[in-house]
C-alpha cells in the first residue's frame, strides 16, 4: 500500500466507484419503473454520438464528446418513443430496433472515416480504459495534500466526481416526486405532478450518468452498474431509501473488489498480466447479484414463499 498503489490504483478505483455510484442511483428508479434496459440502449448509442462529435469538431476533447454522446442518447430515447407510438410496437422490440440501428450507424461511420490515427475504436468504447487512468504525478499518500500533484489528477476523476455529486443532489431534491411517480403514477398525476416530465428527466439524467461514466470505464460497467447493484439491493429490502443505500454499497464494493481482483488476482494465481478491470467489475457485480438472488431477505415475490 505504498506509492505504487497511489500512483497506479487509487485513481482508477475512485473513478470506478464514482462511475458505479453515478449509474446505480438512477438505476434504482429505472429498475422499479421497468425501464432497466434504457441504460443498455443508451450505452450502445453513445458510440455514434462520439463518432459524429469527432467528425464535426475534429478533436477528441471531452466536452464535444460528451455533448455528442448526450445528443445521441436523447435521439435514441426519442426514436424509441416514436417507434413505440407511431408503429404501435412493444417497448422491447422498439428499443432493439433503435439501438442496433444507431450502433450499426456508428460502426459504419467509424470504418468509413480515417480515424485510425486517433484513439477511438469500438473495443475501447465497449471496454473502457480504466487501467490507464493513473495519477502520474503522485509519489505517495502525501501527494493527496500536494496542490501540484492534485492539479494533475486525471480529469475523468473530477468529471465523475461532479456528475456523481449532481446526481446525488438531484436524487435528494426530487426524492418525493420521484418516489410517488415511480410507485403510483395515477396518484402522482392526481397530485398535479408532471409525471411525463419526471420520467423524461430521469431518463436524461441516466443518459448524463451513462455518458460521463462511459468515457472512463466503457459501456460494460455502465450497463452492469445501472442494473446489478439496484437489482441486488431490491432483493435486500422493501424500503426505497434503504434500497438506494444498499445499491451504493454494492456499486462501490463491485468497483473496488473488481479492480483489485483484475489488477492483483492474476498475480496471486501466478500469471503475469492483469485482466480487464471493466469486465471484472461487471463480473463481481454479477456475483453480488447472484448472492442476493440466493440469500437476499426480500428475494421472493409477495405471495410466493421464499425458495
Amino acid at each position: 500500500m505504498g506509492a505504487d498503489f497511489v500512483q497506479f490504483s487509487l485513481t482508477p478505483i475512485l473513478i470506478g466507484s464514482l462511475a458505479a455510484i453515478a449509474c446505480a442511483l438512477p438505476g434504482n428508479f429505472l429498475l422499479l419503473r421497468r425501464q432497466a434496459l434504457i441504460g443498455d440502449a443508451i450505452s450502445h448509442v453513445v458510440l455514434p454520438g462520439i463518432v459524429v462529435a469527432f467528425l464535426v469538431t475534429g478533436t477528441l476533447a471531452a466536452v464535444p464528446m460528451l455533448l455528442g454522446a448526450a445528443a445521441a442518447a436523447i435521439v435514441a430515447v426519442v426514436l424509441i418513443e416514436a417507434i413505440k407510438r407511431l408503429g404501435r410496437i412493444e417497448p422491447g422490440a422498439a428499443m432493439g430496433v433503435s439501438f442496433t440501428f444507431l450502433f450499426a450507424l456508428g460502426v459504419l461511420i467509424l470504418e468509413q472515416t480515417d480515424t485510425s490515427s486517433v484513439h477511438i475504436d469500438v473495443e475501447h468504447a465497449l471496454m473502457g480504459n480504466l487501467e490507464s487512468l493513473i495519477w502520474f504525478r503522485a509519489e505517495g499518500w502525501g501527494s493527496l495534500f500536494d496542490p501540484a500533484a492534485l492539479a494533475a489528477l486525471p480529469e475523468e476523476l473530477i468529471r465523475l466526481a461532479v456528475v456523481a455529486l449532481i446526481l446525488s443532489l438531484l436524487t435528494w431534491l426530487f426524492w418525493r416526486p420521484l418516489k410517488i411517480s415511480t410507485f403510483d403514477e395515477g396518484f402522482a398525476r392526481g397530485l398535479g405532478l408532471p409525471v411525463g416530465l419526471i420520467g423524461f428527466g430521469l431518463v436524461v439524467t441516466a443518459a448524463v450518468a451513462a455518458v460521463a461514466a462511459f468515457d472512463a470505464v466503457g459501456s460494460i460497467i455502465v450497463i452492469a452498474m445501472f442494473i446489478c447493484p439496484p437489482a441486488a439491493a431490491r432483493l435486500m429490502t422493501n424500503d426505497l431509501a434503504t434500497q438506494v443505500g444498499w445499491s451504493i454499497v454494492f456499486a462501490v464494493l463491485s468497483a473496488v473488489l473488481g479492480y483489485v481482483l483484475a489488477g492483483y488476482g492474476p498475480l496471486w494465481l501466478g500469471a503475469s498480466n492483469a485482466v480487464s478491470a471493466a469486465g471484472m467489475i461487471a463480473a463481481v457485480s454479477g456475483v453480488i447479484l447472484a448472492l442476493a438472488c440466493l440469500f437476499g431477505p426480500c428475494r421472493a415475490r409477495v405471495g410466493v414463499g421464499a425458495g
Binding site: 442494473i227 437489482a231 431490491r234 438472488c293 437476499g296 428475494r299 415475490r301 425458495g307
Partner: peptide
C-alpha cells in the same frame, strides 16, 4: 425465483 422483472 426472485421478484426481479424480466428486463432487469
Amino acid at each position: 425465483h426472485t421478484r426481479l422483472p424480466e428486463d432487469a
